[in-house]
Computed example of a mutant assay.
Amino acid sequence: MKDEGLKLKQIPREERISKEDFLEKYVRPQKPVVIEHLIEDWPAYKKWNLDYIEQVAGEKVVPLYDDRPISSKFKFNEPHTRMKMSEYIELLKSKPTNYRIFLYHMLKEVPKLQQDFKFPDLGLRFLKQLPTLFFGGENSKVFMHYDIDFANILHFHFHGKKQCILYPPSESQYLYKVPHALISREDIDFTNPDFDKFPALKKARGYVTELKHGETLYMPEGYWHQMTYLTAGFSMSLRATPRTVTNFSKAVYNLIFMRHFDNYMRKWKGQKWIDYKNEQAVKRTHRKNKIES
């Protein structure tokens, strides 16, 4: 990342942390943290790598996503292709690929993996039916977004390294948020941003870290996040309910109205709707920040 790039602080790190300190220092003030040794007593810490996943889930057909821009052809979170997990993992091990697995429902698809982890006692109200896996190839990227349900997230990384860029909700006004969506403009490269085209990004204040195998990232509710797989690898997320009525209400709105409205408009207007939203992302951001487009 260039020296004149985004204004990012390193996410604080704790080797270990008590429930009381975690709640007091990070959850209540809604600040991110990396916990380095939270899961060393999990079987997953020693067992989970690409070879093991191929062994226990190789015959599963999995949904894959790449980095193509959102278009009217696909619905919200609709995969771009599918293949057997064994074929996908062999692809990951052989060369860089843009194909990723997103929100893979582990408990339902591979129950055996439930034996390898536990829900940490950190004072969060976990949604215990929603552990999900994410896979990516070397150099693949997840666009900047925030999660539809405003969950508090524990994100555990396995096999390799991943860079994570985070922004608190307070920075949304600088991130070229696409209206009626949960993403920023997809043509923004957050590892090397074009400030001539997207000048408001200069004002954004965020965080960055590099996760290694076995490390845990806490992302507070509503935080923007962008991931880059520095090597092939995978992660698991555990989700906990929003702590405030405001964010719970936003989650309900996103799930019940926004998602379906956007799908309807894409079906009705097609690519014109996508283009309109991308144009509005720039116009609204520049208007808020008094920048001449």
Rank of each mutant, 00 (worst) to 15 (best):
Q129K: 14
L130Y: 09
P131C: 01
L133M: 12
L133I: 12
F134Y: 10
F134K: 04
F134C: 02
F135P: 09
F135R: 08
G136R: 04
G137D: 06
E138P: 05
N139W: 14
N139S: 14
N139G: 07
S140P: 06
S140R: 08
S140M: 08
K141C: 05
K141D: 04
V142C: 08
V142S: 15
M144W: 09
M144Q: 11
H145M: 04
Y146K: 06
Y146A: 07
I148A: 15
D149H: 13
D149F: 13
F150P: 05
F150R: 12
A151H: 12
A151I: 04
N152R: 07
N152E: 10
N152G: 02
I153Y: 03
L154K: 00
H155K: 01
F156D: 01
H157N: 06
H157C: 00
H157D: 00
F158Q: 04
G160V: 03
G160P: 03
K162W: 02
Q163M: 11
Q163G: 04
Q163I: 02
I165Q: 00
I165M: 01
Y167I: 06
Y167Q: 07
Y167P: 11
P168G: 08
P168N: 07
P168L: 04
P169R: 11
P169M: 07
P169A: 10
S170W: 06
S170I: 12
E171D: 12
E171V: 06
S172G: 15
Q173M: 11
L175Y: 14
K177H: 11
V178G: 09
H180K: 11
H180S: 13
A181C: 10
A181Y: 09
L182K: 11
I183G: 09
I183C: 13
R185F: 08
D187K: 07
D187M: 10
I188F: 15
D189V: 09
F190V: 13
N192F: 10
P193I: 07
D196Q: 12
F198Y: 14
P199L: 05
A200Q: 07
A200P: 06
L201S: 09
L201E: 08
L201P: 04
K203S: 06
A204M: 01
R205Y: 00
R205K: 08
R205L: 01
G206V: 03
Y207L: 00
E210Q: 08
L211C: 00
K212D: 10
G214T: 01
L217K: 05
L217N: 02
Y218Q: 03
P220S: 04
P220I: 04
G222T: 08
Y223W: 15
Y223C: 03
H225G: 06
Q226D: 07
M227N: 05
M227C: 00
T228L: 09
Y229N: 13
Y229Q: 08
T231C: 04
A232N: 09
A232Y: 10
F234T: 05
F234V: 05
F234P: 02
F234G: 02
M236A: 03
L238M: 08
R239I: 05
R239K: 10
P242T: 06
P242F: 06
T244K: 10
T244L: 11
T246A: 15
N247L: 13
N247I: 03
N247T: 15
S249M: 13
K250Q: 13
A251R: 12
V252G: 02
L255W: 15
L255V: 13
M258T: 12
R259P: 00
F261Q: 13
D262Q: 05
D262I: 02
D262G: 03
